[in-house]
């Protein structure tokens, strides 16, 4: 289990806000606390990301976050990729964000199997049937 220091969380929050800023009516990444418990949760599920993630944070520490993100994108895309996955996964897993973008998550929404499909009821499929067979039959031996 990766233990993330408070200093690393602060650097991550700044980088995450470069990638996912408050804009277009959406909250910034740090507004939904991607640097908090969500970060630990994600790295717990995806330990494969930890090394590149922390390498990126180490390289970014002490630098203006926008410059640091550009440098990572240019020099260490794997590290920025890991930071981007952690940030965006945490962001889009957050209920408040899902609500804003209209995403209920993968839904348990069974359909009624006995209901006549709309494409049958309105004649759309009949147009296909009326055009007739389109296959080449097996040739005679």
């Amino acid at each position: 289990m990766t233990t993330v220091s408070n200093e690393e969380r602060a650097v991550f929050a700044e980088l995450a806000d470069v990638l996912i800023p408050a804009a277009e009516g959406m909250p910034a990444a740090s507004d939904v606390d991607v640097q908090g418990a969500m970060l630990d949760h994600i790295l717990g599920l995806r330990p494969d990301l930890a090394e590149a993630f922390r390498r990126g944070l180490s390289a970014a520490a002490g630098k203006p976050p926008a410059d640091a993100a550009e440098a990572l994108n240019r020099d260490d895309a794997e590290a920025l990729g890991a930071i981007g996955i952690v940030a965006s996964a945490g962001y889009y897993m957050t209920p408040a964000v899902r609500e804003v973008i209209g995403y209920p998550g993968q839904e348990n929404r069974p359909a009624d199997p006995d209901e006549t499909p709309e494409y049958v009821a309105n004649g759309m499929l009949q147009q296909v049937i009326d055009r007739g067979p389109i296959f080449v039959p097996t040739p005679e031996a």
């Binding site: 470069v18 996912i20 804009a23």
Partner: peptide, 18 residues
């Protein structure tokens, strides 16, 4: 970076998602 992230991330998500 600014094509994939930043405000464009939100614009693209709004345009494409769902």
């Amino acid at each position: 970076l600014d094509e994939a992230w930043g405000a464009n991330l939100h614009r693209n998500t709004r345009k494409v998602f769902g």
